[in-house]
Design a protein around this nucleic acid. Structure first.
Length: 400
DNA sequence: CCACCTTTGAAGGTA
DNA sequence: TACCTTCAAAGGTGG
């Protein structure tokens, strides 16, 4: 995406937006004839971002309709009605497609009309996350998708700050003047979360202000960099001027760095030899450098508070489901904004930590991720279970 | 206390 | 090259 790359010559994530969109389009191509047009739209919109305003193809028309199922459930809950589980509760996305007509926020203001993207939205979502994602335990929210057009308006009204002189778009609510990278983890700014690598001798902060205006980053686990201005990251990410990386002087760790002691694989150390144990000790001394946030993660950080406020939901799993749908309902231009932010994140991250690899963080989380087959199996099991329950209930009702 | 849930995307690994 | 796995954030939940 030439415009978005801005010709800054970075070699990271080259055209990743294009790639991402292309993948999406390719998947869709298998399901929907209109996919070809979508893919073309995506490419043209990314290649020719500035022309979108003059496009005859209305943005609203091209937006996918949010999954209506969550809305319908929310409405049922709001109405105080008992939730009637579908026999296909595990696959509600494509089993109850028309409910969106009843309560789609797009229809209320005429901003959107049902389109082929509705089908795409459903198939996409259901394909990616089968039944377990919609277990009834995640019901308690209210009209999670109501604000999509309105939110879009809000977003549009708010200047895309990564392209402006105002505050960057993606920020932690409590860190309003920070580069997105600074917001990796708010806790990282607390003294408790300080990386041992920054003040190895005393563990003290060396008189460094904690104000974000002079936040310092370690260029590498051993060094520090400073971004003196809230928007300095823009300069850094675009050109990474060396004057913005002065002599190491402070102690505010990059939020992407957290103490490594927290995340260690418990079972691994016992199996390792002494040499490995020593190596592990050395590794523990190294700060844990987190992965840069991708576009969706940046979007989530920005939108999560809004969803929490609107839906009165705190469960992140539920919120993420909503945000996932909203993400798909975003226009390509809106998404491109986050892809661009993410690209800058990666660029800055790679310059701050040249030797860092995502592999460095592999195995540092304790959790055991379930395999796709396990998840799929569980989904199929849930499907059969729900089907069986429905069958039994039907028989029971008949018998009664 | 900590893995799990849930989302998308990036990146690494493997066949 | 395609596919799979892991990890980023977040906070409630349950073992």
């Amino acid at each position: 995406m030439p415009q978005l790359n801005g010709g800054d010559g970075d070699d990271l994530g080259a055209n990743d937006e294009l790639i991402a969109f292309k993948d999406e389009g390719e998947q869709e191509e298998k399901r929907n004839v209109s996919a070809e047009r979508d893919l073309d739209d995506v490419k043209s919109s990314l290649v020719n971002e500035s022309e979108t305003n003059s496009s005859s193809d209305s943005e609203a028309d091209r937006r996918p309709k949010p999954n209506p199922d969550l809305e319908s459930r929310a409405r049922r809950q709001q109405d105080g009605a008992l939730f009637q589980p579908s026999p296909y509760v595990g696959y509600p996305f494509f089993m109850i497609p028309d409910l969106g007509n009843l309560c789609s926020p797009y229809l209320t203001n005429g901003a959107l009309t049902p389109s082929a993207r509705t089908v795409r939205q459903h198939t996409h979502t259901s394909a990616r996350s089968p039944s377990p994602s919609l277990s009834p335990q995640y019901l308690p929210f209210q009209w999670p998708l109501l604000d999509v057009p309105g939110r879009s308006g809000i977003r549009d009204s708010a200047t895309p700050t990564h392209l402006s002189n105002s505050v960057p778009v993606v920020q932690h609510p409590h860190m309003t003047h920070l580069h997105p990278l600074l917001s990796y983890s708010p806790e990282a700014f607390s003294p408790q979360r300080a990386s041992p690598g920054f003040s190895p001798d005393t563990g003290k902060r060396t008189g460094m202000s904690r104000t974000p205006h002079a936040a310092c980053y370690p260029v590498s686990p051993g060094g520090m960099a400073q971004i003196p201005h809230p928007l300095g990251w823009l300069l850094v990410s675009s050109g990474f001027s060396s004057r913005l990386v002065p002599t190491p002087q402070s102690s505010i760790p990059h939020p992407a760095i957290v103490p490594t002691g927290v995340k260690q694989e418990p079972g691994c150390s016992s199996q390792k030899s002494m040499g490995d144990a020593q190596q592990e000790k050395e590794d523990e001394k190294k700060p844990h450098i987190k992965k840069p946030l991708n576009a969706f993660m940046l979007y989530m950080r920005e939108e999560r508070p809004k969803v929490v406020a609107q839906c009165k939901v705190k469960e992140s799993a539920t919120i993420n489901q909503i945000l996932g749908q909203r993400w798909h309902s975003l226009s390509k231009e809106e998404q491109a904004k986050y892809y661009e932010l993410a690209r800058k994140e990666r660029l800055l991250h790679s310059k701050l930590y040249p030797g860092w690899s995502a592999r460095d963080n592999y195995g540092k989380k304790k959790k055991r991720k379930r395999t796709k087959s396990e998840t799929q199996l569980e989904g199929e099991t849930m499907f059969r279970f729900c089907d069986t329950v429905h069958f039994l209930l039907t028989r029971l009702v008949k018998d009664l």
